[in-house]
Design a protein around this nucleic acid. Structure first.
Lengths: 188, 188
DNA sequence: AGTGCATGAATGACGGTTCATTCATATGTT
DNA sequence: AACATATGAATGAACCGTCATTCATGCACT
């Protein structure tokens, strides 16, 4: 049995939690799926909560890296948005379980105070809001309430992901980025 | 102490579950909030799950009634959508806890098989999809994939509600219906 | 022979549900 | 009107299954 236990546990947790939801997931199931003993999990994570937190951290870091890279590019707003959404949707096509977890477990209140999750998650709509404001100043898009628009975009993305994972119709996601960008471009 | 225990329990559950989330809500807390004994809950509900199911049933029935009434009216698509969204957002302004629960607890996998919740909830985007198709046939809006658009609208609505309850900024909701309709009207 | 990771049975807290009991109110009887 | 009895809603302490977490022991590699 080879190494990188932490990664093995993360992948197992993604699989099991996507299936049954965080609260109905037993650490013993995660252990079994990962092929390790229950106790081993606790050599790498302080608690069950921390596993979920780690899952979010990994995924959101990937997306924020993309967003920051895009911010610096000279591309127009719509190109940036299209790139970002395409990346996000591709990731979910590759691993639908991630989609399930991201839409389902976000923001759920945990027993012992807040986790980092909300904090991490906030940053995505914030980044979009920032890009929106820049685009408005450049006159690339008309004046709108960036906050509301960001919430709409963020929500629309989740809506499409949700529909996809609920119906297992991944064809939706292959064109969703263009569909959405097109709609928004005309709309704003 | 007057009557209608079931209603008292429903209201208490809304309050407590909005605060702590379904899975962190103890039946004893609901009982306390409702001013009844724990056992009394079980005279009106078979389980904790059933309380949540009932909360959804009540709220979704209200919304589906509106939607069906609108379907029969001769009003155009955009008027209908505006009316529906206005109603929904007003309800959440009146009782933000409902908003929290609707966006957070939807579709969460329960231990003992499926609940009615997903089934009920499906009907909203379905109704929107239907209205969209009718509007496209009438030529009121251009041809689009109704399924994707319905998912986008449904998601966008949730996004705005989520933003609102997370920031406690209810001013968002007062104009959100018009903002959203306007954006979509131009976009489609 | 010491260090570090892995193990999984044991532990203990927690909380949903049950049910024997209480109690308020209604009904019937004189 | 006074009393007896029946009904079923309300109660909450106790029960019991369910896990998250711990830790004593085993194992491997240096």
């Amino acid at each position: 049995m080879e190494d990188d236990k932490k990664e093995r546990i993360r992948e197992a947790a993604i699989k099991v939690m996507a299936e049954t939801g965080f609260f109905n997931t037993k650490t013993s199931s995660v252990a079994e799926e990962a092929g390790v003993a229950v106790g081993t999990i606790y050599n790498y994570f302080r608690s069950k909560d921390e596993i979920l937190e780690y899952i979010f951290a990994v995924e959101l870091k990937k997306r924020l890296t993309i967003l920051n890279r895009l911010r610096e590019s000279t591309e127009g707003f719509w190109g940036k948005l299209d790139r970002f959404l395409s990346y996000h949707f591709q990731e979910i096509i590759k691993q639908p379980e991630i989609g399930r977890i991201l839409v389902r477990e976000k923001e759920y209140p945990r027993k012992n105070g807040a986790t980092q999750i909300s904090g991490y998650l906030q940053k995505i709509p914030e980044a979009i809001e920032l890009m929106l404001n820049e685009a408005m100043e450049r006159g690339e898009i008309g004046k709108h309430k960036a906050k509301v628009v960001a919430a709409i975009i963020f929500g629309a993305v989740q809506g499409v992901v949700e529909k996809t994972v609920n119906t297992d119709d991944f064809s939706l996601l292959t064109t969703a980025a263009q569909d959405l960008v097109e709609l928004l471009k005309k709309g704003l």
